[in-house]
């Protein structure tokens, strides 16, 4: 979906900054009920993940084979237990720490590298633009997940490698969107003014252009972060991401798959968590896009 929602033709093309944009954005966002609901869910999930070490949780790695595959709501295990008798609630919260941080890190890496490529390509134009964007085209020429899998094949399975692979795959979305906005800003009056004041090109790029490209970067981040969480979980699900004893939601799903007939809740629990987080992110992302750029509504 990032391909569709982050297409360059949807990026804002004027850099006109309203005064106190932050406050306006927040007011607009608050009007969108689904976005507010999404924000609340995300806040709770993030808080739980952050507070995991302080919560009175059973050790997520503590096995108890006599108590395996307990259903949801069984005594002492609110969400039941998995095939080794480990507490699913505890594993869900600890796994969430892994899944969320990996997804957010992947987004930050993709956003930094992709935006830098887009800024430089859009600002300098010409041969620089051409060579950078042709490279981006090549990355886009691969089906999304396939490139990630190929990269993991090279780097070797593992959580960090899965995260790197997912970041690289998402770089084009940022590069294209940011380049589009940058190109439209380069010919704007305040950039001309900055040139007339003989500011250095680096200063113009980072102090004049970058702040006005930020809405594009934020919109693209909000539309891709859910996807990145899903896909890193997906790689773990396939056994290419988190390796035991580390466990994220994807690895929990992968393990739950084996017991789908006898104890489907083992895979329903982590899957619901991914779904809940991603749909909340999408609600917030939609609201944010409408708030930052009402013309796209």
């Amino acid at each position: 979906m990032s391909a569709a929602t982050a297409s360059p033709d949807q990026t804002p093309d004027d850099g006109v900054v309203a005064p106190r944009r932050g406050a306006t954005t927040w007011r607009r966002l608050k009007r969108n009920r689904l976005s507010v609901a999404g924000l609340i869910v995300l806040a709770v999930v993030v808080l739980l993940a952050l507070l995991a070490p302080l919560l009175p949780l059973i050790d997520p790695a503590a096995t108890n084979p006599a108590n395996r595959l307990q259903p949801i709501g069984s005594e002492g295990h609110l969400l039941g237990t998995d095939h080794l008798g480990r507490d699913l609630l505890s594993r869900l919260i600890w796994g969430g720490r892994t899944s969320l941080s990996v997804g957010v890190f992947a987004t930050l890496i993709a956003a930094s590298i992709g935006s830098l490529i887009g800024l430089v390509a859009g600002f300098f134009g010409g041969a620089t633009d051409n060579s950078l964007m042709r490279g981006v085209d090549v990355l886009m020429a691969f089906p999304y997940l396939l490139l990630a899998i190929a990269l993991v094949a090279v780097l070797g399975p593992g959580l960090v490698n899965a995260m790197i692979a997912i970041s690289i795959v998402n770089i084009p979305f940022f590069a294209r969107a940011v380049r589009g906005t940058t190109v439209s800003l380069v010919s704007s009056e305040y950039v001309d003014a900055a040139r007339a004041l003989a500011f250095s090109r680096l200063r113009i790029l980072f102090r004049e252009v970058l702040p006005n490209v930020m809405p594009t970067i934020i919109i693209t981040m909000s539309t891709t972060v859910g996807w990145m969480i899903t896909e890193t979980a997906g790689l773990s699900f396939l056994g290419l991401g988190a390796q035991p004893p580390t466990s994220d939601w994807g690895a929990m799903l992968g393990a739950g798959r084996e017991f789908i007939t006898r104890a489907p809740h083992v895979m329903i629990v982590p899957g619901s968590a991914i779904f809940l987080v991603v749909i909340s992110l999408n609600f917030v992302g939609d609201g944010l896009r409408d708030a930052l750029d009402p013309r796209l509504k």
Partner: peptide, 22 residues
């Protein structure tokens, strides 16, 4: 549509198996 594009397909596939196959 938003639900559709938020559901991880690997999870949906398993839910389908639980509901429609098993």
């Amino acid at each position: 549509a938003l639900v559709g594009l938020s559901i991880p397909s690997f999870w949906l596939a398993m839910i389908f198996i639980v509901v429609f196959a098993l």
